[in-house]
Design a protein around this nucleic acid. Structure first.
Lengths: 229, 229
DNA sequence: GCAAAAGTGTTCTTCGTACACCCATGC
DNA sequence: GCATGGGTGTACGAAGAACACTTTTGC
């Protein structure tokens, strides 16, 4: 979809760092630019803000155009406005990050891009403009956030095993945890709902599935509970 | 100082929440608007970004015009871009906060304001636009920040007593601490340098003065230390 | 029966918390 | 000498960290 130049704020864009988890690896979604400047370069998903839309709405629109997804966990990180960060004219960008349940389906390049692709966090190619800096800042933000808010679940399917959960934290934080202590700690929080279901199709003992309920967290939080990993 | 309309980005402003500590109370600096829209209303210190300046530079310029201060601790908080937050046209604002050593000297209204004044955090008058929301968001940000980074010192003079320090945390966080535990915890961090000086001019036992050194913190941080109150 | 991951308890150390009295100084 | 805030130590309980073996399942 193309937008009328009159409907666009030419000095303000949003960029969104989209994180997904694929086989225990943290990945980011990037697009290849199909227009100047920096045609052909890899970039974060982003675009100019429309005159009649809020900042987060703009970031969500971009994400939806490319992944088809809505109702995604998204949060503002920081605004980047260095003089000269964008060639030829002044553009300030507001960075968001999104956590999505990894998929290869329904990905299609946006209006001004020729390709979309997932990259493991340590195999990211060269990026256009200041996008590398934005990515690094956002990743640092996510790492601090994931330890103090129960947002990691957004990267997992609705039903998950404790091993998957541990793997997620290890992938995001780049550390490893002791299995017994990790389970003890998470289960003691009473945020996880044990289901009467198990994994299927695995060549070993099937693990129990759990789910996470945001409402329970909100209620506990209101009572003074604070998530901390 | 007035700026040429051609040098200004009319869609982007910065607003700065300036915090100071006066006699154990947390205060914010506000200005009274001397121009439309909302002439006469109380507002955060802010202004439009110039074409040739970075975002933080813009916030620092505004602060300097009003307080005469530079080299102040400042950090970006969040950007606010709701459609309709500013009357008559679309303006996105990037909010910063600053921590300064409280003073009444050298305060003078900026180019478009008629008054500058400190307000205790719980006696803030009605504010223009979405400034109340920005203030609340920023205060919440500060409260979380002050517990995880040693930034509180920025609100105190270079030499301070442990009682002043405790009072600062109590004022910012709205809680109270046990004196013995508070001292034990802070001194154990090895961030405070005990000076061979004491308070003067007090009608009771004079307290020892301490100073805080950022370099020491940076070195400890690099070794894995993390400040936590 | 074997490979592969699931699941589970105890000990020790560290850290947070609760709590009350004497000290130094100015007036 | 008295009022005012400065300064200090100990005991208890909670939480984090280290650590190894048995269980279940599919093949």
């Amino acid at each position: 979809m193309q937008y009328n130049p009159e409907d666009i704020l030419p000095t303000i864009s949003t960029d969104c760092v989209i994180f997904g988890l694929d086989q225990g690896k943290l990945k980011v979604l990037l697009t290849r630019r199909a227009i100047a400047p920096k045609k052909g370069g890899w970039a974060l998903l982003g675009g100019f803000v429309l005159k009649h839309e809020d900042l987060e709405t703009s970031a969500r629109r971009t994400l939806k155009e490319i992944s088809g997804m809505s109702n995604v966990y998204m949060e503002q990180v920081h605004s980047f406005g260095q003089v000269g960060r964008f060639p030829s004219r002044r553009v300030i960008t507001v960075a968001y990050y999104a956590l999505i349940n990894y998929t290869l389906e329904n990905l299609k390049p946006g209006p001004d891009s020729s390709d979309v692709q997932w990259f493991a966090i340590n195999e990211v190619p060269e990026l256009v403009f200041d996008h590398r800096y934005i990515l690094d800042t956002t990743l640092a933000f996510l790492r601090s956030r994931v330890r103090t808010e129960p947002i990691g679940f957004e990267l997992l399917p609705a039903k998950f095993t404790l091993t998957q959960l541990q793997g997620l934290y290890e992938a995001v934080l780049g550390t490893s945890f002791d299995t017994r202590n990790f389970r003890k700690k998470l289960l003691k929080m009473n945020l996880l709902i044990p289901l009467d279901e198990s994994q299927t199709g695995v060549a070993h003992r099937a693990a129990r599935l759990y789910s996470f309920n945001k409402d329970i967290y909100q209620k506990l939080k209101a009572k003074g509970f604070s998530f901390e990993l």
